[in-house]
Structures are given as structure tokens and as C-alpha cells.
Design a protein around this nucleic acid. Structure first.
Length: 875
RNA sequence: GGGAGCAUAGCUCAGCUGGUUAGAGCGCUUGCCUUACAAGCAAGAGGUCACAGGUUCGAGCCCUGUUGUUCCCACCA
């Protein structure tokens, strides 16, 4: 047995070695307990472009805690890992690389481009996986998946074709969110709104007949090049006679009608709205109602198109300036009103979105949303905390059709072909070689790919072999817990739910554990642009993975953000070190060939043993209950308190005398120390896997790894009486220390201790503890006792304690102190007595509560009597 | 415009279904190198639980309102 452990715990000597052992022994592998119940988590697949950031670290830590805990409870546990192809982000990396090489994706062509992307994935896609391993993730790496691998791709195609055949996927011309930088559409969820300073330009639109003008206001003057009408409210008195007349569109010079539509708000702006059907969703609808022409004045990359006439080729913002300048020159600009407004931006590159007419593929959401709402409403899927179900309902109930086609190459290519001869659209699971309608070979495949989130939406079942009736799917699907941040509910969680319900007829998971964001020490979001991100790997390097995990688990309550700072990790590191040293202490008292952890014969147990076992049993149920409720932060802080305050600060100290004494007493103390320490390590293992394994392996143990050890179960004990006795002693020791500290008595100065108490036997039996922990020379205990003159008196509910320090006693101060304590106790006693006299309280409060109050009342009564006696002794 | 969260010690936060005198970490004060640990030990100071009402025998916790703050959704050009 290895006992010469270093004084300071060094994670670097431990973590990688232990992780490798776990891997070698295949402990992460699922499916090895065929008769056990399953517990399954699928990882939220990190992007292959990604570097592990603090958000991942939190997310993975929480998942690993759950998975390790369930594994120890005997479940056949699967944590399925994998990565996401992240179409936009990855494509951008490749495009950038090509640009640096002086070429472009168009130049090298689709096939070569995809080859590059796969190379890129091979090179960098594994990086994040290695980083997950550093934090100790117990994923089943044999089942690692990728959203663009063969199986996932087959599922995507199956789903697309099924939905198309059911009429739930359609192709249509709609206003979409267009990112001019990424040059693709985005779904509504992928647009982030930012408040920006802008202007409200008021412009004159003259009547064609020369009878004056209508004033309109716009925040995007460049779009006027695509105006095809001006709309007013049908009941607006001001424009009653204008409807039906025409205006001359300034700069363009073309005639446009004035139409009436209830969409217009009379009270806003001038009450007249320019209608640009190609660049605004509302205008598009107005245009549909009034059969207006649709003129797209922009290009894919945010420049003005040929439809913009002489402005063609100009950047959209340059064009805006040019238009305003020209309006001003022509005297058509009435005013410029500065205003803040929300501008939609691309969630990847934060370029302003251009609403734009386009023919795209959409998922019809209304029929999918209903059943997806029901499974949450019926309690089949639970959000933790529950308030996020409201967020979910709100989104699902108001959802619009989902634009799923992307003008990208890296992704799942849409399985649709168009026949050049008859115009047929062919959507098929297998690539067709001719048009099934007219037989023409002249068919071309849609060039677009699908939204990345379309494939992630299938993740819980596409990774397990669906649509086949695969073994894993049968055994591990539906999964159990999904752990993710609240920022991703719409993108992913909601879409997994409706996809799974639609395609498998089952819920994808029963519980969604939502966590918040990890912020910096000032509470700011960690971001690249702010440069305030903290690299988890650096933290691991500096403090160890266990310390990082402990910090993330401790600071976290479901759904809430947390602040991260080095100081917090330091505290966690110190805790790891504390455990390490406690283990060192236990180990240095052990002999060769100690038996495996066990509880000694009850007859041999000393009071502190029964006390710690009683508290340990309570701990086991508290920790397990907290985990059952997904209160991981609660569970881990209970462990922290027990290990540090109960086991280290008290139990170890209480054992020292017996350990020195040797013999049977030592054997018993050792056994209980080992038993409780081993149990604590098991309870802590999900949170701090490395150090607990290292210590568990060093302690006597049975089995090969703490990872597959049995999760402790709380034993029934009847040690309540001994526990109460021990607490009396501890209380008295604390009181003595307190008095000595107040009087500045050095620990090295020993004094006799006299304890007068009705529980004198308890204190007599605890004499060794007073000697060891309260600087006692000799301990005298009795129900009545001859106490020397000139003692300091210390009153606890259970005892009056006297220590002869006459020369140090300031009798005036002593009297004042006792009186102060008496006053405070009396006040409390009166409150209690009043409460107990209240019929309303005694009859309505639970019996247990009343009982506790009575007990407390009696204790206080006794203590007050003692204090009064002491005061009168002082004269 | 709609919805949600937060407000507890100097700082960061716990406080589980309402039940003694509200806790922790960090910081601060005092004393200790007590043969596991100075990344430690012992003791201590510090809070009218944002504010105002209400329900209750009892409220940090439940209800109503107010203030401050953060976030999400919607997007009147």
C-alpha cells in the first residue's frame, strides 16, 4: 500500500493516468449490464469548429455527474458523444482558408470544396473530443457520432422525404432572413436582434398630378428603389381622397399607386407607408393582397442589384447615403429623425440581416407544434426548472414555418431534383436517374443544403440507428436526461421534441435539465470580442479538472447564470487538497493488508463512531435525494460541509487519542475512518472523479474502480442518543474554546475543567476530548461538584463548565458578559414560552415542531437558572 | 408591447415542499507552525433577507402592489 503521498495534491500526476485506465478497462462502454435498467444521455454535440469553452465545461460536467452517479447506482449507462458539422461556421473557415490561398469555393467547385471540408474535419474535429476527455467525461467513445456521418445522414434524408410526402415540407417563395456576409438564408431563430442607432428619414413622395405630395418615413431609404406602392389606412381621413391616385417614386421616377390597407397604423409615423414587397415581410403580405409587383433590389452579398438601376453594384449602406444625398438635393427630404431601433443580425457573424424574397424550403410547423406542446403539458417531458416550459410553450404556440434550406455546400444536401423538361420536383430517398413523370434524364439536384439544426433535431435517435430497428435504439431510446443551456431551447430542444414525436412516436427524453450561462467575474457574458473568456483547459492546467468541475457544480442552481473567477477555483482546489490530506492521515495510521471497508462490531463502537455513522447515513440520503431532484449544487455543498466540517474538523480529531492508544480502540477507529472515508469518496466521485479514484484505490477497497463501485445506501441506525451526547460534548468544547479565545489564553496553557451537569457521565466519558481539543489538564464531571474559587464559568444548555483562570478573570467584565448572555437568553425564552402558551400554535403546528420548541424551552429554562446562579455567585 | 429571472453579510452566492436565534466561500479582526493539511487550525465581527401591504399560530420562502436590475420573445414602416 502506498502511503508516502505528497503533502500537496498534484492533479497532474493523477488525471491523465487515471483517465487512460478507465478507457483501457472500457468502463465508459454501455451495454455491459444487459439485465439492468438503462440511463441515457446524448451529448449536445459541440461544433467541430469549436474550442472547449466554459459553457461546454459546465454542460459536460453536469452530464458527467449524472452519468457517473447512475452508473454507480447500477444502471446500464450510456453517454453518447459526438460532434456537429456546424454548416455555417465550418463553411466560413474553409472559405477563409481558400481566400488566403487566392482561390474561392466557386473556383475549386463543390466536390473539391467538400473534400477540403472533410480534411478540415479530420484535422480539427477531434480536438474538442480530446478536450472533453481532459475534464473527465465518461462518454462511450465507441459510440461517437457526427451529424454528417452515414447514419445521421440517412436519418436526415428519411425525415426530409417523410415530411415532404406528408406535405409538411414545401418549397415556396417567401420573405426570408438573408445574411449578406454568409450569403445564405437563416431561420427566424438564427436572427439576433440588436438595438442600434438609426434614423427615421421623412421623404416627400409627390403626386403624379402635381397636386402636392405625401410624406412617408423610413429607416431603410435604399429599399425605396423596390417600392411598388404607398399604403394608407382605409379609414384615415387625411388620405381619404388620395387612395386610387398615384405617386411619382422619387429618384426612380416611376408611377406607383396609393392603396388602402388596414395593416397601416394611423398613429405611427405619417400614417403613410412605402410598400416594398421584396424586402419586408409585412409589405410582402400587403403586396400579395393588392397584386403588387415584387422587385428585389439587392444581390446575395448585400449590394444593389440590376433592379436598382444606376445604383446597381453599390454596397447597400453606400446606396443608402447616396439616396439620402440625392433626396436632399432634390428637396424631397423633409427631416431626419434620429431613433434607436432593433436590427436583426446573423447569429454567426452579426451582419445585419436583409429581409428578402426568395424561393426556399420550409417545414410547416403548425401540425408539428401541437403534439410537441402536448407531451410537455402532459408531463411526459419535464423542464427543470419548470419555468422553462412556459418559454417553450410561448415559442411553440407562436411558431412560424421553419426555413430549412441554406445556400451552403457543407451539410446535408437537399434530396430534391428538378426536371428541366416537365418542371417536376422529385424528392426521393434514393437518387433518381430520370424524371419519374416524363422520363427525362435532364434532371438537376437542388444545390442547397439543410439547416445544421435540422440534423441536430434528430440527434437522440439518428445516433442510435434510426430508421432501422437497431439494438441501441431499442435499448437506449428514448433517452433520459438532456442537459443544456437556456440559450439553446429554441434551436435544439424544441426541435428535438417535435421531430422525435413525429418520426418515432416517442419523446426523445423525459427530463430537460437547463443551466445558465457562465459569466466572468464581473458578470459579463464571456465573448471573443470582449476577450474575457476563460479557457477551461488553462484552469485545468492550473488547478486540476476536479477543482474546475467542483467549482462549476457548486456555483450552479438549475437555470441560473453563474459567475466564474479564479478565486472560486482556488477554493475548490483547496478542498481537493483538504481531502487529500485527510486521506493521508487515514493512510498513515493503516497497516499492511487492512481489511476492506466495513463497520466494526457495534459493541466496539465508541460514541464518536456512532455519531459520525449517524451523520454519514443522513448525508447519504441527503446527497442521493438532492441528485434525484437534479439539485446537483445542493448535493455537492452537503458533501463539502460534511467532509470538511464534520469528518476533518471533528471526527479525525476525535479519533486521534484512540489511534495513539493502539489495540482494539485503534482498530475500531481505523475501521470507521476508512469506512466513512470510502463512502465519502464514492458520494463525491461523480463531482470529483480523479482525486476520489486515486484515494479510493489507495485505501483498502474491494473492486477494481470507484467508477463501478456501488453507490452508498443509507443504513438504518439507532444512534440518535449517542449523537446527542456527542453534540453536548462538542458544544461544551466550543464554548470553552470561545471563552479562552476571548480571554487570550494560549492553547499551550492547560487547565483543569469542571463540568457540572445532569449528564455528568457523558462528559466524564468524553474527558479525552476535552484534553485533546479544549486544552484540559484533568476533567472533573459530576451532577454536583466542588468547584474551586475564582473560576470562569461557561454555561451551555447541557452543562455548567468551570475553568480555574482566576488571575485572568476580570470580575466586572465577567458579570457583564453573563448578564448580556442572560438577557439574550431570557428574551428568547420569553418568546418561546409565549408561543407555547398560544393555543393556536400548539393545536395547529405539527407535533414535531411543537415538541422541538418544548425541548428548547426546557433547555433554555435550565440555562437561565444556571446563569442566574453564576451571577449571584459573583455577588 | 408580451413574458421571465434576480434583489439575502464588504464581494460572490446557498437557503429543498413556510417551522428554533438566516448559512457558506472569499475578504476582514484576533490567536495558533496543535506530528493530515499555513491551499491549514481555533475564535470573532458583520444581515431591519429591496420597499409597502396581505394570508398564516408562524413568512427570506406564499399572495398583491411598488422600485431597481438582467434576460427572452414580438418588431409600428
Amino acid at each position: 500500500m502506498k502511503k508516502d503521498l505528497a503533502k500537496v495534491y498534484d492533479p497532474k500526476n493523477v488525471e491523465d493516468r487515471i483517465y487512460r485506465e478507465w478507457l483501457d478497462k472500457k468502463y465508459f462502454h454501455a451495454g455491459t449490464r444487459p439485465r439492468a435498467k438503462t440511463y441515457t444521455i446524448v451529448i449536445p454535440p459541440p461544433n467541430i469548429t469549436g474550442q472547449l469553452h466554459m459553457g461546454h465545461a459546465l454542460d459536460e460536467t453536469l452530464q458527467d455527474i449524472l452519468v457517473r452517479w447512475k452508473r454507480m447506482q447500477g444502471y446500464d449507462t450510456l453517454w453518447l458523444p459526438g460532434t456537429d458539422h456546424a454548416s455555417i461556421a465550418t463553411e466560413k473557415k474553409i472559405v477563409d482558408a481558400l481566400r488566403d490561398e487566392g482561390t474561392s469555393k466557386e473556383e475549386i467547385g463543390r466536390e473539391a470544396f467538400l473534400e477540403r471540408a472533410w480534411q478540415w474535419r479530420a484535422k480539427y474535429g477531434g480536438r474538442i473530443v480530446e478536450q472533453l476527455k481532459k475534464i473527465g467525461c465518461s462518454c462511450d467513445w465507441d459510440r461517437e457520432r457526427f451529424t454528417l456521418d452515414e447514419g445521421c445522414s440517412r436519418a436526415v434524408r428519411e425525415v426530409f422525404v417523410n415530411l415532404y410526402e406528408k406535405g409538411l415540407i414545401y418549397r415556396g417563395k417567401r420573405i426570408v432572413n438573408w445574411c449578406p456576409h454568409c450569403e445564405t438564408t437563416l431561420s427566424d431563430a438564427e436572427v439576433e436582434y440588436e438595438e442600434q442607432d438609426g434614423n427615421f428619414w421623412h421623404i416627400k413622395y409627390p403626386y403624379s398630378d402635381g397636386s402636392g405630395y405625401i410624406e412617408i418615413a423610413t429607416t431603410r431609404p435604399e429599399t425605396m428603389l423596390g417600392d411598388t406602392a404607398v399604403a394608407v389606412h382605409p379609414e384615415d381621413e387625411r388620405y381619404k381622397d388620395a387612395v386610387g391616385k398615384t405617386l411619382i417614386l422619387p429618384i426612380v421616377g416611376k408611377e406607383i399607386p396609393i392603396i388602402a390597407d388596414t395593416y397601416v397604423e394611423r398613429d405611427f409615423g405619417t400614417g403613410a407607408v412605402k410598400i416594398t414587397p421584396a424586402h419586408d415581410p409585412n409589405d410582402f403580405e400587403v403586396g400579395q393582397r393588392h397584386n403588387l409587383p415584387v422587385i428585389d433590389v439587392m444581390t446575395d452579398d448585400g449590394h444593389m442589384s440590376a433592379n436598382a438601376g444606376r445604383f446597381a453594384g453599390m454596397d447597400r449602406y453606400e446606396c443608402r447615403k447616396a439616396i439620402v444625398r440625392e433626396l436632399e438635393e432634390k428637396g424631397l427630404l423633409v427631416s431626419v429623425e434620429p431613433m434607436k431601433h432593433n436590427v436583426g443580425t446573423c447569429y454567426r457573424c452579426h451582419t445585419s440581416i436583409e429581409p428578402r424574397i426568395s424561393t426556399q424550403w420550409f417545414v410547416r410547423m403548425a401540425p408539428l407544434a401541437g403534439p410537441a406542446i402536448d407531451v410537455v403539458r402532459d408531463g411526459k417531458i419535464k423542464f427543470i426548472p419548470d419555468r422553462f416550459s412556459k418559454t417553450y410553450y410561448n415559442w411553440m404556440e407562436n411558431i412560424r414555418d421553419w426555413c430549412i434550406s441554406r445556400q451552403l455546400w457543407w451539410g446535408h444536401r437537399i434530396p430534391a431534383w428538378y426536371c428541366a423538361d416537365c418542371g417536376e420536383t422529385i424528392v426521393s430517398k434514393d437518387d433518381p436517374d430520370c424524371c419519374p413523370k416524363c422520363g427525362s434524364k435532364n434532371i438537376t439536384r437542388d444545390p442547397d443544403t439543410l439547416d445544421t439544426w435540422f440534423s441536430s433535431a434528430l440527434w437522440p435517435f439518428s445516433t442510435m440507428g434510426w430508421p432501422d430497428d437497431a439494438e441501441d435504439l431499442k435499448r437506449f431510446f428514448p433517452t433520459d436526461t438532456l442537459v443544456t443551456g437556456y440559450d439553446i431551447i429554441f434551436f435544439w430542444v424544441a426541435r428535438m421534441i417535435f421531430s422525435s414525436v413525429e418520426h418515432t412516436g416517442k419523446i426523445p427524453f423525459n427530463t430537460v435539465l437547463i443551466h445558465g450561462l457562465v459569466r466572468d467575474a464581473q458578470g459579463r457574458k464571456m465573448s471573443k470580442s470582449l476577450g474575457n473568456g476563460i479557457d477551461p483547459l488553462e484552469i485545468i492546467d492550473k488547478f486540476g479538472a476536479d477543482a474546475l468541475r467542483f467549482t462549476l457544480a457548486t456555483g450552479n442552481s438549475p437555470g441560473n447564470d453563474m459567475r466564474f473567477s479564479d478565486e472560486k477555483v482556488e477554493a475548490s482546489r483547496n478542498f481537493a487538497n483538504k481531502i487529500w490530506n485527510a486521506a493521508r492521515f487515514v493512510l498513515m495510521n493503516l497497516d499492511e493488508n487492512e481489511p476492506a471497508p466495513h463497520i466494526p462490531d457495534e459493541a466496539d463502537l465508541a460514541t464518536p463512531d456512532k455519531w459520525i455513522l449517524h451523520k454519514y447515513n443522513a448525508l447519504v440520503s441527503e446527497v442521493t435525494d438532492a441528485l434525484d431532484r437534479f439539485e446537483l449544487g445542493m448535493a455537492v455543498s452537503r458533501l463539502y460541509d460534511f467532509i470538511w466540517d464534520v469528518y476533518c474538523d471533528w471526527y479525525i480529531e476525535l479519533c486521534k487519542t484512540r489511534l495513539n492508544a493502539g489495540g482494539k480502540a485503534k482498530e475500531t477507529a481505523k475501521a470507521v475512518l476508512v469506512y466513512v472515508m470510502s463512502g465519502m469518496m464514492k458520494l463525491l466521485h461523480p463531482f470529483m472523479p480523479f482525486i476520489t479514484e486515486e484515494i479510493w484505490q489507495t485505501l483498502p477497497h474491494s473492486g477494481d474502480s470507484i467508477m463501478i463501485a456501488d453507490w452508498p445506501t443509507a443504513a438504518e441506525d439507532d444512534y440518535a442518543a449517542e449523537t446527542a451526547e456527542m453534540e453536548k460534548i462538542i458544544e461544551a468544547i466550543r464554548a470553552i474554546r470561545n471563552r479562552r479565545a476571548e480571554m487570550n489564553v494560549k492553547p499551550s496553557r492547560k487547565t483543569n475543567v469542571y463540568v457540572v451537569s445532569s449528564s455528568a457521565d457523558t462528559f466524564a466519558a468524553g474527558a479525552e476530548f476535552f484534553k485533546k481539543l479544549a486544552s484540559a489538564e484533568e476533567v472533573f464531571a459530576g451532577e454536583k461538584l466542588d468547584v474551586p474559587e475564582g473560576c470562569v464559568s461557561i454555561v451551555t444548555p447541557a452543562a455548567s463548565v468551570y475553568i480555574p483562570l482566576s488571575e485572568l478573570v476580570d470580575f466586572e467584565a465577567e458579570r457583564a458578559r453573563l448578564n448580556k448572555e442572560l438577557a439574550s437568553d431570557r428574551k428568547q425564552y420569553e418568546g418561546l414560552t409565549a408561543r407555547l402558551a398560544n393555543e393556536n400554535f400548539t393545536s395547529r403546528a405539527p407535533a414535531q415542531v411543537v415538541e422541538n420548541e418544548r425541548k428548547k424551552d426546557k433547555e433554555l429554562e435550565a440555562k437561565i437558572a444556571q446563569l442566574e446562579a453564576e451571577i449571584s455567585k459573583l455577588g
